[in-house]
Design a protein around this nucleic acid. Structure first.
Length: 296
DNA sequence: CACCAGGTTAAAG
DNA sequence: CTTTAACATGGT
């Protein structure tokens, strides 16, 4: 895709396959804030970006340009992916609606924590919990960018004379969190799952994970407390860009029954059937469906 | 106030 | 192997 970069800025020129609101609102990320149709903020691990949308371009201001080029998956052509899926009568209107969606390349540890919290939860509360945890256990970092807008209302940031944001905590930083901390963060019954998984994880396991094949990665994720099939699929898709999986949540369950005029509740079966249908592009198809149906 | 939310777990069939 | 009840809690 067409983009250019300078020291602290990426400029995206091809708006036919980049829409920041669609990218952020399609349920793959929780640490972001959309100020208005022109300005949005993102925090990924210890990195911060503020995004400005104009008529003819999008500007991503950040101190780490190369990190966000990979994060926003800018070297992939999504128009080719969309063309490959447009034949599908179910999907076609969803692609037209979410034309600017891209699947982000996010951090493995952040995805594990985020999607354990996501289980049987709503997006607003997931955001609140993750921001709470980041504020309590993450590193407070200064924004070294010339911002000519007011970001006071952002839940990611804090302002005195200058502006700060809270990085997502590292595994080491979260090791000291107690079950009570997670309950205060609003995790509810997920608090014990989170505690157990954090205590069992090591940085070596996270490193070695990347050497496993996809089936082994899936099995490892399922061995973590609070990670079932749907959450494991989300982690593979959003952290490893493994697109031949189809996470089935309540929305996708509804979509499936709507499209096939059935009343199935077996999500394992739905996932298998949809993966057979969309194959190595399943993850992309899933995002187009999710965004379209949740927006209505 | 009842129902829902990007489901998982452990127990039972 | 598949089905089911229980699970905390803020959002709507």
């Amino acid at each position: 895709m067409k983009y250019s970069k300078s020291k602290n800025k990426i400029t995206v020129h091809d708006l036919s396959q980049f829409n920041i609101e669609q990218i952020l609102d399609c349920g793959q990320i929780f640490r972001y804030y959309i100020h208005n149709s022109n300005v949005a903020e993102v925090v990924s691990m210890d990195k911060y970006a503020i995004i400005f949308s104009y008529k003819d371009r999008v500007e991503i201001a950040t101190e780490d340009v190369d990190y966000f080029i990979n994060f926003f998956d800018l070297d992939r052509d999504y128009n080719i992916i969309k063309q490959s899926l447009e034949y599908d009568e179910f999907l076609s209107p969803c692609i037209d609606f979410g034309y600017g969606i891209r699947i982000l390349n996010q951090n493995l540890f952040e995805m594990i924590v985020s999607f354990i919290i996501s289980a049987n939860n709503n997006i607003k509360r997931i955001k609140n919990s993750l921001n709470f945890i980041s504020k309590k256990f993450g590193t407070k970092k200064k924004i070294n960018l010339a911002l000519d807008i007011d970001i006071n209302q952002s839940p990611l940031c804090e302002n005195d004379d200058v502006s700060y944001y809270y990085a997502f905590p590292t595994l080491e930083q979260l090791k000291i969190a107690t079950v009570q901390d997670y309950i205060e963060a609003g995790l509810g019954y997920r608090a014990e799952h989170m505690y157990e998984t954090i205590q069992n994880l090591t940085s070596k396991k996270l490193e070695d994970f990347k050497l496993l094949n996809s089936k082994q990665q899936y099995e490892f994720l399922l061995s973590l407390k609070g990670v079932g099939e749907k959450v494991a699929h989300c982690i593979l898709l959003f952290a490893m860009h493994q697109a031949d999986v189809f996470p089935v949540d309540t929305w996708i369950n509804k979509v499936y029954n709507d499209l096939t005029k059935s009343v199935v509740t077996n999500r394992k079966l739905i996932s298998k059937e949809l993966t057979d249908r969309y194959k190595e592009l399943s993850g992309y198809a899933q995002q187009y469906f999710f965004y379209y149906y949740r927006s209505k």
